[in-house]
Structure formats: structure tokens, C-alpha cells
Design a protein around this nucleic acid. Structure first.
Length: 844
RNA sequence: GCGGGAGUGUCGGAGUGGUCAAACGAGCAGGACUUAAGAUCCUGUAGCUUAGUGCUUGCGCAGGUUCGAAUCCUGUCUCCCGCACCA
């Protein structure tokens, strides 16, 4: 086999694509053409991969997989005649760059810029067909100024607001920590320092305003079922009753889904993280409460956020704990005085952060009551038996249906009926109302970090928090800051000092930056108009390109990014900038590619395969092909060098076919197979069954005869092109084409050329080969030598079997006679056994 | 605990009511070519049986629906993922 110089071929075509701007797309403008001659009045198609955080380590295999999946789809759609928007950009702001700055003393900006140019270089080597002219970088002020602009708009619409919220605080760093920086309740950099909880003023986005719409529209999305289910659970809508308890004469609304158990309330529990907790505590209990609060760990431990094994164990040990506050609440239905406890198991920002505890009918309340010896009062009796029947006490909460007992005027009602009646009663007395609660929280966007978009707010002693006027945007990140001493922006006094936009007196800038998820919540809109310096984007351009037709990325973003971007879309729609409700029509999650040992690729395990190394060794097209061959792209798979080698061999074979080919007429059999496979591959790519498409394409190339028509070869190459763009360009050129196969038309199957006959013929031949070898085997077992095979077919069937193919596959001399042939060689008269489609066999 | 998904040869993986379950790739075995190795090509790869036949077993396990089930239903086991005290 002649040595193929894949590297040279790749470089040649990557350069040509770039020089001739083959993948440059224009927005819809009538009668205009792109530099490559493609009219832009065709239907648009927007293919997008989730943009990467540009890490200093460069591209890893997960990136290569993600982008190859998208590139194949983009190339496919382009060939199908769509005006395809397929851009790339960088989610450059964020904590990792800042951590690198602290650890290796590189300024985040330098780190990020270096990483980005490395990414671009590597992505180009993978042959990805991005329109690089639309590249965006979220760390550039021309991008994040629009983050700030959106913030101002949200402030205007009362979607952005400020309130106190708990944060993780390390006293040694003098800094707020992200949840990822809290390990086992301690600071990641000071293992001896327990993380404390502080309540600071923080900015929030009121995503809960859109909770209902986010929930309702979920069903309409063409997204993976599991992602939709996750989002629904994340939003977590529940219906219930808000009941007003009085504490120190002040009204405390309590949310419950079980108003029918109101007579069973024996204590209240307020969240240990509740900002107003201290106001509830009596003098006598103050010390005990403070001790209790000290015991509790970080914010993340509260929430039980931990993904590792130890974290799970930790959670199991996280027993319900609490302490009496010394204070009481009044039950509105019977004016009973109910003790209030502070507890670690109550979520502070769900409902009002306090719950009515009904230990007889709620397992959590029961556990708590058991531990602290609190009263348990049964108010719902199941129909079939009595709860107290057995030994005068209960061993667990009864959460099922039943009739009310000991519930005043509501006694004897069925509990479901009682729910309605009690709620009605409370509404009438102005002591409650029907409410809907969501698990979804408002989005805390304040970060006490440097490498994010500065929040455009100025604090004035007189005017308070004043928004920066739009004309003053962007508020640029100052380059000169000190890392490792609390909030970096707070270390640049010169930057902080400013004038109040309202009263022009001395004022100070907000030193917090925005959560990095802000940047990725609308970037897909900016691709439609990336260089617009006057406005966030041109409405008409966005109207043309959006929504994203196909979005591709990891399932780990199901609940953060993929909800935030929906929220942003709805907000911008309400501002009048967008005329659609949902940003992403179709979503695809790629699987994870693990190491050959089945574990996640990790340096510590030594199972990392670097995609660029592989392309050097086996070529880019081989890698692309292999990545799609391991498994269906939505499934997890393990790296396997053999699959890699197999792909490499296949491509060499394709090249060899073209080296040796003779162009002539095509035969009906090849045409049939080709058209059948065109049909199958088209459907399989459309459905991301790339692995199956590849199987069919391999089958096609393996069956190509030595001599066939140019058209057959062209169509076959086109099918392979999305997977292996470089060698298909090269071979396309070899077929004397001057234009790019990248811009060629996707073949359409000609139904009339598809014939079942050839499949039957192939099947019959396979069966015959099997029969012959079976007989050969039996003969060999009997110790007889065989060198010749004679076949006897019924009249007219002789041409049904391909004698050359038989000779090749049997590896022995094969002769075919018609049974009616008088001159045939048939010493044992076996020819009389011949049946239709079943030749008689004689071997000697 | 709740929710979602998956269990098919030696392995990765196809096939989701019907003419043949295991396509395609890999491994292994045999053969051709070769001084040899590699590459390439051919054949085989559940069991028994046979001049190309026939039978049995078989899609995690156990039932069920059906003329017919890997595919639908019920139960059960195992694994993976997500959420996790949301009152």
C-alpha cells in the first residue's frame, strides 16, 4: 500500500477552506452572495455546540467528540442546501482563569488569551467548519458590556434586585468561597480553617417570575426526555396553602401542602440559615442557639451539594438537629401556643423558611420529635385500622389518607375534603390563602471575584445603589488588581472611586462581578450579529437566524445553563427584542468518552488520550471516524485503540480504491446498493445515529466494484464527507472537480433504482458458500481431499450465481452446470437433487 | 428516598411485535499469499447432528398478553445518571 500523507492533505484543505472563505455565511440579504458563491436566500439552519471554557490544557477528547458531532451535522445540513450558521466562541470569564492567576501568577487576561489562541489552532486542525468571522470572546469588553446592559434592563424591569444571602466565608483568605472551593466544610486552601457562613447583600435575578412559563413550555421542546424531566423537577411546582401563624404579634406565613393536618401541629421549625432567626431567639436560649449554629458547616454542606463518595456518606450522617429558640407561635385555628425550634433540615428560602411540624404525619417532623421528645398528635386516622391500636405509640409518621380526628369542627371529614374546607375557612378569616410554590430560586449572580463582568452599580451615601448610565458602559475590568486577598476588585482603590451619576458626589463602584453563567445565557444571540457596537444585536438578523435549530452539548448543563438561557430569552422577548419564546428547538446530548479502562479520562489515572496526538499518528479524518464509531454519539463509550486503527485502515482502503479505480458504466447492483444506502445514511445522520451511518458507508465502499461510474463514486464520497472532510475533498479533486465537496449537494436516493433482487442474490450466494464450505468441512473430516467443486442448477439459474465471486470465496475451482446440460461432469448423479435456488453440490 | 435510563455472543455494539436475532467492528482459530513477519484476502467462531440436513439452547431473572415477544405488560434483581430533607 502506498503511504498516504494525511497531514499534507489536511493542511492543504484546511488552508483552502480558510483562504476561500468556504464556511463564511451571510445573513439574509436579498440577491447577495457569499464569497463562495452560495446564495443566502436559502432556508437558514443554526447548528450550535455549547461553547467551551478555554482551559490552558487545550482541547481534550470530550471537546473533540462534541465538535465532531456538530461539524458532521453542520456539513450535512450545508450539503442539503441550508444556509448554515455554525459559529464558535469562548466562555472565557470564570473562576478557573482566576485560580490559575493565583496559583501560577499569570494575569487571567493573558492566561485566557493564550488559551483561546491554542483552542482555535487545535479546532482548525480538527477540520471543523466554523464561520470564524463570527467568533466571540466573553472576556472582551465589547461582549460583556451587553451583559451589563442586560443587567441594567433587568434592574429597570425589577427583575434584578438586591437582598441578603448566605455565603461561604474563609477567615484566612478574607474571601467568599464558591461551593467548589469548600471541601468537607473547610477552605480548599486552608485545610485547617472551617468555612463560616456570612450574610451579605447580593444581587439576584428574579427568574422565578418566569417559573410558570419555563415549566409549561418544557413539554413543547424537542429535547431529550430526561433533560425535560430534570428541568421540571428543578422548577418543582407545588400547590398548597399559606397559613398565617403569629409570632410575637407579627404575622409569619407558613407554606404547607397538608392544611388538613393543622390540628396536629406540635412545634414549628425555622431554618438555621434564616436571616431573621436571631430576632426569634429569646435571651435565655441565645447562647444555645449560637452554639448550634457554629456546629453547622458551609452553605454547600447545608444543601448537601457533594458529588463524591464521602459526600454521600456525610449526607447520611446529616441527622436532623435543632435547638429551641425560646419563642412560640400561635396556631390560627385553635390559638394553641407552639414552640419554635431552629433546625438544620429546613430550607431557608423555600416558602417563608419556617415550617409547621406535624410529627404524626410527616416522617421528617417525626424523626425530629422523636429525637427531642416532642409531642406527637395524631389527627388523621386511616380507615382500615387505628394508628394507636398496637402499643399506644407510633413508630413512624402516617402519611396516607384517612379521616380527621381531634380537629375541632373539621373532625370526621375525609382528609382530602378537609384540605379544601380548612383552606376555605382560613381564607375567610384572612388567615391564609391558596399559593403555588416553586423549588426554583431566584438566581444569585453576585460573585466576589475578579474575572467576570463587573456589575454596573455605583454606591452613593446619599442616593444608595445607583445604576451606571448606559452611555458609560462598558465598565471595564481594571487590569491592576491584587489576587489572594479577598475580592480582587476591592484592591484597586483608584478604580473603585467614582462620582455618583445622580448627585455627582464621591461614590464607590460595586466590586462584585456577575456569575459566569450570565455570559453564556445569551451568547447564541450575539453570533447572529457579533460585531455590533451600537446595540446588543440587530433585531432583523436575530429574527432570521434564531432560534437555534440544533444545539449540542453535555447533559451536565440540563439545570443551569439550559434554564438560564431560556430565562434570558423570555426576558429579552418581553423587552421587545425577540419574537420567539424558546431559544433551542432541538437539543442533543453527547455521551462521555471514557478511557480504555472504562474510567473517566483523568491525568491521575493515566488513561488520557489527547486528540491532537491521535490526529498526528492516524490523521484527523481517522479520529473523526473512530469517535463516531465507538458507540451511538448519545451513549457513553470507552476509548479503544483498535477502533482507531480500524478506522485508519478503512480510510487507507478508500484511498486505495480511488488509486486503482477505472471509471466506466455502473451496474444495476451497485446502483441499487448505493441508493438504498443513501436513503439509510440520510435518515441516520438526521437522527444522530452516526455509528450506524458509518457502518452503511463502510459497507458501500467495501462493495464498490473495480469499475464503476463517476456518479457512483461521487455520491459515495459525499456520504463520507461529513465524517471525513479532508480526504473526501482530496478524492473529489481527483475526480476532476474544481469546486469543494464541502459545498456539493447531498445525494438524494432514487427509489426506482433500489431493487430487492440483488439482496436476494447476495443472500443466495452466501447460503451457497455456507453449504459448500459445510460439505468441504465434512469431506475433510472424513480424510478426503477435495480440490474441485461442481454445482448443478436448474435451467435459467446459471447466471444467478457469480462464478468469480464463488471462486474467490471458496478458494477452490468451482464449475456450474445446468442440470439439463448433457455434457456435464456428474459421476454420482447428484444433479437430480438440485432445487430452485438451491443448486446440487458435488465435490471431489 | 424520588425521578430518568440500561441489561443482547469473548468484547464494543446493531436489532424495539413477524420471513434468519447478533448487522458492523474487534478478538480468537484455520487457510491463501510470503524466505519470514506485517499488511491484505478467504473461512469459521452456542451445542448436538448431517455431503450442504435436522434438532436444541439463546437477548438479566420469573410470569403474562399474542397465532407469534429481545421488542408490549406485571413482578424481580443488577448497574449507570440526575435530584436529594422543598413541608
Amino acid at each position: 500500500m502506498a503511504e498516504v500523507n494525511f497531514k499534507a492533505i489536511e493542511k492543504k484543505w484546511q488552508d483552502k477552506w480558510e483562504e476561500e472563505e468556504v464556511f463564511h455565511v451571510l445573513d439574509f440579504v436579498k440577491d447577495k452572495k457569499t464569497p463562495n458563491g452560495v446564495t443566502s436566500s436559502r432556508s437558514k439552519y443554526y447548528v450550535l455546540e455549547m461553547f467551551p471554557y478555554p482551559s490552558g490544557d487545550g482541547l481534550h477528547m470530550g471537546h473533540a467528540l462534541n465538535y465532531t458531532i456538530g461539524d458532521i451535522y453542520a456539513r450535512f445540513k450545508r450539503m442539503q442546501g441550508f444556509n448554515v450558521l455554525y459559529p464558535m466562541g469562548y466562555d472565557a470569564l470564570g473562576l478557573p482563569a482566576e485560580n490559575a492567576a493565583i496559583k501560577v501568577n499569570i494575569h487571567p487576561e493573558n492566561y485566557t488569551n493564550k488559551s483561546i489562541s491554542n483552542f482555535i489552532k487545535q479546532q482548525k486542525l480538527l477540520g471543523l467548519s466554523y464561520d470564524w468571522s463570527r467568533m466571540i470572546n466573553t472576556a472582551s469588553p465589547s461582549y460583556y458590556q451587553w451583559d451589563q446592559w442586560i443587567f441594567l434592563k433587568m434592574l429597570e424591569k425589577k427583575i434584578a434586585y438586591r437582598k441578603k444571602a448566605p455565603v461561604n466565608w474563609c477567615s484566612k483568605c478574607k474571601s467568599v468561597l464558591a461551593n467548589e472551593q469548600v471541601h468537607d466544610g473547610k477552605c480548599w486552601r486552608h485545610e485547617d480553617t472551617k468555612v463560616e457562613i456570612k450574610h451579605l447583600e447580593q444581587w439576584f435575578f428574579k427568574i422565578t417570575n418566569y417559573a410558570d412559563e419555563l415549566l409549561d413550555k418544557t413539554d413543547e421542546l424537542d429535547w431529550p426526555q430526561r433533560t425535560k424531566v430534570m428541568q421540571k423537577n428543578w422548577i418543582g411546582k407545588s400547590y398548597g396553602t399559606e397559613i398565617i401563624f403569629k409570632v410575637n404579634g407579627k404575622k409569619w406565613p407558613i407554606f404547607t401542602t397538608r392544611p388538613d393536618t393543622i390540628y396536629g401541629v406540635t412545634f414549628m421549625v425555622v431554618s438555621a440559615q434564616h436571616p431573621e432567626l436571631r430576632e426569634l431567639v429569646s435571651k435565655e436560649q441565645k447562647q444555645k442557639v449560637e452554639e448550634f449554629l457554629k456546629k453547622l458547616k458551609s452553605v454547600s454542606a447545608y444543601k448537601g451539594v457533594s458529588s463524591n463518595e464521602e459526600g454521600k456518606k456525610e449526607l447520611e450522617f446529616l441527622e436532623k438537629e435543632g435547638v429551641f429558640t425560646g419563642n412560640y407561635a400561635i396556631n390560627p385555628v385553635n390559638n394553641e401556643k407552639i414552640p419554635i425550634y431552629a433546625g438544620n433540615f429546613v430550607v431557608a428560602d423555600y416558602g417563608s423558611g419556617m415550617v409547621m411540624a406535624v410529627p404524626a404525619h410527616d416522617q421528617r417532623d417525626f424523626k425530629f420529635a422523636e429525637k427531642y421528645g416532642l409531642k406527637i398528635k395524631v389527627v388523621i386516622e386511616p380507615k382500615e385500622y387505628k394508628i394507636y391500636e398496637r402499643n399506644g405509640q407510633i413508630s413512624e409518621a402516617y402519611t396516607g389518607q384517612g379521616n380527621l380526628i381531634d380537629s375541632g369542627e373539621f373532625s370526621d371529614l375525609e382528609n382530602e375534603d378537609a384540605q379544601k374546607k380548612i383552606t376555605k375557612f382560613l381564607i375567610k378569616k384572612k388567615l391564609g390563602r391558596e399559593v403555588v410554590q416553586y423549588k426554583l430560586r431566584d438566581w444569585l449572580i453576585s460573585r466576589q471575584r475578579y474575572w467576570g463582568a463587573p456589575i454596573p452599580i455605583i454606591y452613593c451615601d446619599k442616593c444608595g445603589a445607583v445604576p451606571v448610565p448606559e452611555k458609560d458602559l462598558p465598565i471595564m475590568l481594571p487590569k491592576k488588581v491584587t489576587f489572594g486577598e479577598g475580592n480582587p476588585l476591592a484592591t484597586n482603590e483608584e478604580w473603585i472611586r467614582t462620582k455618583c451619576p445622580k448627585c455627582k458626589k464621591e461614590a464607590r463602584r460595586e466590586t462584585d462581578t456577575m456569575d459566569t453563567f450570565v455570559n453564556s445565557s445569551w451568547y447564541f444571540l450575539r453570533y447572529c450579529d457579533p460585531d455590533n457596537g451600537k446595540e446588543i444585536f440587530d433585531k432583523e438578523k436575530v429574527k432570521y437566524w434564531m432560534p437555534i435549530d440544533q444545539y449540542i452539548g453535555g447533559a451536565e448543563h440540563a439545570c443551569m445553563h439550559l434554564i438560564y438561557c431560556r430565562f434570558y430569552t423570555k426576558f429579552l422577548r418581553d423587552l421587545g427584542l425577540l419574537d420567539f419564546d424558546e431559544p433551542v428547538k432541538k437539543l442533543f446530548h453527547q455521551g462521555m468518552l471514557h478511557g480504555s479502562d472504562g474510567h473517566v479520562m483523568a491525568k491521575s489515572r493515566g488513561n488520557v488520550i489527547n486528540p491532537l496526538d491521535v490526529t498526528t499518528k492516524y490523521s484527523t479524518d481517522s479520529l473523526r471516524l473512530a469517535l463516531m464509531s465507538f458507540a451511538s454519539p448519545n451513549n457513553d463509550a470507552n476509548w479503544d485503540e483498535k477502533v482507531m486503527i480500524g478506522s485508519y485502515k478503512f480510510l487507507n482502503k478508500v484511498i486505495e480504491i480511488f488509486d486503482n479505480l477505472k471509471i466506466g458504466d455502473s451496474d444495476a447492483k451497485t446502483e441499487s446498493k448505493l441508493n438504498k444506502i443513501i436513503k439509510e445514511v440520510t435518515a441516520q445522520i438526521e437522527n444522530f445515529k452516526y455509528n450506524l451511518a458509518i457502518i452503511k458507508i463502510r459497507e458501500l465502499f467495501n462493495s464498490l466494484p473495480e469499475k464503476t461510474s463517476k456518479e457512483v463514486l461521487e455520491k459515495s464520497l459525499k456520504l463520507l464527507h461529513p465524517f471525513c472532510p479532508h480526504i473526501t475533498e482530496e478524492l473529489w479533486e481527483k475526480l476532476e472537480h474544481k469546486k469543494f465537496i464541502s459545498l456539493a449537494e447531498w445525494p438524494i436516493a432514487e427509489e426506482k433504482k433500489i431493487s430487492e433482487f440483488f439482496d436476494k442474490q447476495d443472500g443466495a450466494l452466501n447460503k451457497l458458500v455456507l453449504d459448500i464450505t459445510n460439505v468441504l468441512k465434512i469431506v475433510a473430516e472424513k480424510g478426503r481431499d477435495a480440490s474441485k467443486v461442481y454445482l448443478y442448477v436448474l435451467p435459467g439459474e446459471k447466471d444467478f450465481y457469480d462464478l468469480d465471486e464463488l471462486n474467490k470465496r471458496i478458494g477452490k475451482k468451482v464449475e456450474i452446470f445446468e442440470v439439463s446440460d448433457k455434457t456435464k461432469y456428474d459421476p454420482k448423479y447428484v444433479s437430480k437433487k438440485a432445487k430452485s435456488n438451491r443448486p446440487a453440490i458435488y465435490i471431489e
